[in-house]
Each structure stands twice: as C-alpha cells, then as structure tokens.
Amino acid sequence: MSTYLVTGGAGFIGSHLGESLMASGHRVICLDSFSDSYDYRVKMRNVQQDSCRDSVAAITGKKEALAELSRCLESERYRLETVDIRDRAALERIFQSEPIDAVVHLAALPGVRASIEQPLLFDDVNVRGTLLLLETMKKYGVRKWVCASSSSVYGNNKRIPFSENDSVDSPISLYAATKKSCELMGYTYHHLYGIDGMMLRFFTVYGERQRPDLAIHKFAKLIDQGSEVPFYGDGSTKRDYTYIGDIVGGIRGALEYAENNESVYEVLNLGNSRMVSLGEMVECLEKELGKKAILRKLPAQPGDMTMTFADIGKARRLIGYEPRTSFEDGIRNFARWHGGRTS
C-alpha cells in the first residue's frame, strides 16, 4: 500500500482519483482548502459517504461541518485535511505526520476569466502555493509527483493538433501563465533536487461531479430550468473534451511511470483527441436532457481560446494512455448523474 497526498482532493478530478487509488488498495491524504470559489458543500458531497451524511447535515457552520466530515471519513485508507497550500506550517505538519510516497497536485484557483479579474490572487495560489509544496517535498524527501497543468498554456496555437513540442510562450490568460509557471518550477526542482515530475496538460475535463461553474454543468442546469444560456461568440469555438474516467486513467498511468523510473521530467497532453464545437456541445446536451436551450448570444470573451485539440501520441507511448469514452457517451453519463433524461 502506497500513501498519496492529493491536493485539491475533494474537487471534481481529485475526488474521482481518490476513489480510484483507494479501490486499488492505497492510502489517500486528501488536502483541500474548500475555498469560496464555489459552494464548499459541493466538495463535501464529492467525498462524503452515506455513513457521514446525517452527522454532517446536522451542522450548519462551515468549519464545524468540515471538522465532523474529517472525523467521520478518517480510516486506514483515507484522511481529509482542510488546508490551503499556501499555509507552510500546515503543509509541514502533514508531511511530518506520516511517510508520503508521492504527491498528485491538483489544487489551483480555476478559471480563465476569473484570473483576468484577480491576477494577484491567482499568482499567489497557483504559483506561490505550488512553490511552497515543492519546497516541502524537498525538505521531507518526497521525490515523486504528478502536477496538473492545462491545455490553456497553448494559447491560440496555430498548429493542430497541439503537441508537447509546440511553443507555449504566448499564454492569453493569467491562468494559463500560472500553469506554465508550475511546469517550469517542476523542471527546476527536478534539475536541482531530483524531484521526478509528470506535468499533465488536461484538455477540458467533464463528467460526473464537474464543477458547477464549468460550461457543461452550468448549461445543463440552465437548460433544465428553462433559463437563458450565455452563449459566447458564434458557436464555432472548439474544445477537446476529455471524460473524467479517461483523465483518472491518465493520472494513474503517469503516477506509475514516475514511480517506476528514475530521473523523470515529462510533459504530457491528456485529451480525447477530438474537437467538438460549442454549438455541437449544446445540441448534445439538448438531446440527453430532452429540452431545448434558450441561447443568449454574447460577444466572445477575452482570454478564451478559439480551439483546443490534443496530440496524445506521447502519452500513448509513455504511459499507455488511451481515452475510451466518446463525447456522446460521456455526456450521457453526465446527464444521468445530473438527473436529466437519457435516451
């Protein structure tokens, strides 16, 4: 049994990864700040078990509810720590408390548009927080990690599909710039201190438990309610949507690769290697929810990429990554979870 520290472990991707690791017999230390970027109760539900539901529901205060959730979930396989990655003392306490075999770093402030509005906060959390994590890993001898990067680092790349060899020197949002910074810091700590790292560029992850502010989840809720859906641009922007199960498989493969090899620093795309337009995404949601979207046409937003498309050849070669869920099947799974009608 290995012990993995998963930062952002109560979030959309982190909660799925934690379940997968525990199902394979490993121990997970879930670190999450439960920040106010969206309702903290969403993340509580991501990790909450049926046995905890009544005791947690009886508590109204955030701090008290999280303390009860941590107490209830504590087991041989799982530990929940409500910690901000910028809290150096708290990080040290966790690393001191038990041996950690590897770190999966998913914690970050999300959102292209939000990063343009709050650049200093995004720098503090995403860059400084990652640096503090690396410093703590160095101090306590943890030499393996997987770090979540993003397809946003490619900016408006002209080469299709996006390859890890393409230049990422022209980010068009502060969020993208913070993610590139994390990749660079990962290389520096690998070079100086021998910390082996896998930098994973996620391409528009979706599926059950997707964050409520992300397009598919947000659109589904508005379509269900019969409310207007904010529709930016003419619908021609395209994304490489990647199902959560495929992303978890890619993270697990990257973690295994880092653990089984020495002197590792790699950047990998994790996508589905298929582009779907915004208009096609809405049509697919309409079909699975059985309702028509009411679109409110708006101008394209600054910082939004025109398209993303992953070349996943390197991930296939190195870690055996192979996405298995089509966009249509993934939306069907999401709609079922969301409570929509499926065909």
Rank of each mutant, 00 (worst) to 15 (best):
R88T: 10
Y40L: 12
A108M: 07
V104H: 07
Y78C: 02
C52Y: 01
G111E: 01
E74T: 08
I100L: 09
Q118P: 00
S35K: 12
Q48W: 00
P99T: 12
R41W: 03
A58D: 14
D36Q: 13
R79P: 01
S33H: 07
L73F: 02
L121F: 03
R71I: 00
I116Q: 13
I94G: 12
R113S: 09
F34Y: 15
A57S: 15
A107F: 05
E74A: 14
E92A: 10
Q49M: 06
Q48R: 13
C30S: 15
E98Q: 12
V103S: 13
E68C: 11
P99C: 06
Q118R: 14
A102R: 04
S51P: 01
E98N: 02
G111Q: 03
V47H: 04
I100V: 15
S75K: 03
S33P: 05
R86Y: 00
A89E: 15
S115V: 03
C72E: 05
A58G: 09
R79E: 11
I100R: 08
E98D: 03
A108T: 10
V56K: 05
R71V: 01
D32T: 10
L31G: 07
L106F: 05
L69M: 11
A89R: 14
I85L: 12
L109I: 00
D32A: 12
A102S: 11
R93L: 07
E68T: 05
S37Y: 13
D50P: 09
G111D: 03
V56H: 07
S55M: 12
D84E: 07
R77H: 08
A65K: 04
Q48Y: 00
S115A: 08
S51M: 07
D36W: 01
K43C: 12
E64S: 14
L31M: 15
Y40C: 10
I59A: 11
R71A: 14
L80P: 02
S51K: 14
R93I: 03
T82W: 00
R77C: 04
G111Y: 01
R71M: 09
I29N: 11
N46F: 05
V103G: 09
E74R: 13
S115C: 06
A67T: 10
S97A: 15
A67R: 13
E76G: 10
A108G: 09
C30H: 05
A107L: 06
H105V: 03
L106D: 11
D84A: 07
E81Q: 07
E98F: 01
T60I: 09
D39F: 06
E98W: 01
I116K: 10
V47F: 02
A67W: 00
D101P: 05
V47E: 06
P110G: 05
R45Y: 08
L106N: 08
V103A: 11
S115T: 05
S55L: 08
F34S: 15
K43P: 04
H105N: 14
R53V: 03
R45G: 13
V83G: 05
P119H: 07
V112I: 13
E117M: 10
R41H: 06
S35G: 12
C72N: 06
F34P: 14
A57L: 06
S33A: 15
E76Y: 00
R53M: 02
T82M: 03
K63H: 13
R53H: 06
K63L: 11
P119N: 11
C52R: 04
I100M: 10
I85F: 01
L121Y: 04
P119W: 06
V83S: 04
E81K: 08
